[in-house]
Each structure stands twice: as C-alpha cells, then as structure tokens.
Amino acid sequence: MSDQVLSRDDLPVTTEGDVVTVRRRAQAVAQARGLGTFAVAAVTTAASELARNTLTHGRGGDASVEAVARDGRQGVRLTFRDQGPGIADLSRALAGGFSTARSLGLGLSGSRRLVDEFDIDTTPGKGTVVTVIKWARF
C-alpha cells in the first residue's frame, strides 16, 4: 500500500486509562487531518472499541495512531496488536451479535462498520493485529 505516513504515535494498551489515552490521541489526529465531526466520532469510537478488545480479550498490547495520506486524501490509521489468545471463530466475531470477554462481538463488528478500511490478522494462541483507516470525506 502506498500510504504516506505523516506522523506516528505508539501507545501502550495495558490499563483502562490507556484506552482513554489512545482514543483521545485518535480523536486529536483525526481532527488535525480535517475529518468531519461525524467521521471523528466514528474513528474515535472505533479506537475505543478496539483498544478495549486489546485490553480485555487480548490481555493487553499496544496501539499505533498514524496520520496518513493516499493520493491526496488525508486519513487516520489505527493499529492494535496483542499476544493474546487470538480469535478462533473470526467470521462469527465479525458478524457481531455475540459476546465473549465483554464486548468483543460488537467491538469488532461495530468498529468495522465505523471505518473505511478494516484488516484483521489473528492466530489462535499467538495474538491479533487489527488495522483500520478512516479517510476525510470529500
């Protein structure tokens, strides 16, 4: 992918407070990139859901909040990594509506509906990496 990375923050996701820090950072970057009010709320909420998944389901990990550009479009890219148990039934998790470890179901399926690009790489027993992008709309 030919995305230009304009800035990058790496943040730990090991406490409840970290979830707040990550979503506030995502919000600040989204606002600075010129995303509209609705898009900012969407990506900030997705950040919150995914960070919470990393914390509760993935037993903690870390997150990157990046300002990116592609073909002149501005966006925010969020990456969440953990070395937790992974997700055994991914298609079911992405369909939403079920919940293990609190809000995993809605966390994944809900955040997917809030962003423009969603990518997940999970290996049972090894961990999970989720990458999402929200673009500023024309």
């Binding site: 900012v40 969407a42 809605l106």
Partner: peptide, 14 residues
C-alpha cells in the same frame, strides 16, 4: 445525545 454520537451508535448496530 449528540448527533455524531447517535449516528455512531446506530452505525455500529447498537
């Protein structure tokens, strides 16, 4: 409830 909050909840399917 703010407009962007309502829209986000609904889009998530909540």
């Amino acid at each position: 409830i703010r407009p962007e909050v309502a829209a986000t909840l609904v889009r998530m399917g909540y």
